[in-house]
Each structure stands twice: as structure tokens, then as C-alpha cells.
Simulated assay, not measured.
Amino acid sequence: MHKQKINKLLIGTNNKGKLREIKSLLPKKIKIYSTSTFNLGSPVENGKTFKENSLIKSKYFSKKTGLLCLADDSGLEIDFLNKSPGIYSARWGGKHGDFSKAIRRVYRELSKKDKNWKNKKIKARFICALSISFLNKKIACVIGKVEGHISDKPRGKNGFGYDPIFIPLRKRKTFGEMKPSQKYKMDHRYQAFKKIRKFL
């Protein structure tokens, strides 16, 4: 299947920020479909890892549409919080995926562990698992990571999710303060994309 050149691809996400970012990484010659075209809800993500959840999504959306599907599962791991929120990153925002609520929860949990956490460097990383499936068959599944730390307050209006509180290694700005074009060239999705590109 994947020996042929792919010319049609469904992006298996209902998250507009992810859709925008993945679209910007894909070769222009590929015709992109989104889940909203087919009015599809998301499957239950009951995997134990980013990879498992990514495959649940790519297989589910592919079976629903008969299209080859690229899906992402990603999140933020904070070492100080035993790698939470991890695969529950989106769920920390409640059922409407409100990330300002999720960010408040991160700060609350950090303060619970150490009220002086702002004086420390709180190590964190974004992780992204990208998978491509066709119907029930996995074609590829890779992981990308970007290391960094948590800023002491949310900064910047760009990006989505936890971007306003994540400062990548050797940078001063949060992902939320960076231009999308700058962020897209270095983040976890891009790292994963570099590995999966050969399948496209």
C-alpha cells in the first residue's frame, strides 16, 4: 500500500490547532481531508501510551472513511509531577478541552508539591506519537520529543494547548510567544514528522 505515492490523506484529529500544524508540514501535492468533512466524532482513547492512542485514532478514522489516515497523540510530561499530565494532557482541560483550565491545574499541582516551584527549573517535554494506518493495518508509528521547562506564568497568544507555558531548551520564549513558522520547525510534531515523512 505505502509503496505507492500517497495522494489522499485524512488527518485524524478534531483539534483545529493540530490540524493546522500537521497540514503545514505535509507535502502540498497530497489532498488533505479532515474529520469534520465526514462529521466524525473521536474514538475513546483508552491506550496506555501516546503510541497506542495514536493508533486507536488512525485506525478508527481510516475504517470510518476508507482513507489512509495520519493521526497524532501528543501531550506534556512534567518530571516534577511524575510525568503528568502525559497522555491525559487534553483531559486536564475538562470535557470541553479548555486549556486555560488545564494550565491552571498544572500550576495548582506544582504549587501543591512545592510552593516555591517558580524559583526552580521545572523540566518538561512535549511528546508526539504520529501514526499512519489504512483500515486496520498499521503502516507506521513514530515518536517525536522536544525538551524544555515550564514558565512561571502563561506567555503569548500563539499556538494552542500548553504552548504558553512551555519554553523549549536553549530558548527564552514560550511556544505561545513564537511565530508559528518558528515553532513548527522545532516542536515535537516536527520531530515525529521527520521520521514519518519517508512513508508519505
Rank of each mutant, 00 (worst) to 15 (best):
T13C: 12
Y107M: 05
G66A: 08
K3I: 14
A102L: 08
E21Y: 12
V106W: 02
L67M: 07
N39W: 00
I122Q: 05
R189K: 14
K153N: 13
G12C: 07
T13K: 13
S42K: 09
A192D: 13
N119P: 05
K59I: 09
Y88C: 11
P85T: 04
K137P: 14
S151T: 12
F160Y: 02
A102M: 07
K59W: 04
A124Y: 04
E21S: 09
K23W: 04
F80S: 14
I122C: 13
K194H: 10
A129K: 02
E109I: 05
P27W: 04
A140S: 15
L9S: 03
R104W: 03
H2R: 14
F50E: 09
G47R: 06
E21K: 08
L169E: 11
R20W: 02
L81I: 13
F166H: 06
D187K: 02
E52T: 09
I56A: 00
D79T: 13
K23R: 06
M186T: 13
Y60M: 05
G97H: 15
K173L: 08
K16C: 11
H96T: 11
I22H: 09
G159T: 00
G94N: 08
R108T: 12
F199A: 02
Y60P: 07
K48T: 04
K145I: 05
L40S: 03
K57F: 02
K137N: 15
F99N: 10
N136W: 05
Q4A: 14
K121A: 04
N119Y: 05
K63M: 14
K198E: 13
F126Q: 06
A192V: 14
K115S: 11
Y190M: 02
V146N: 08
S62R: 11
W92Q: 14
G97T: 08
E109T: 12
I139D: 08
L40N: 05
R155C: 07
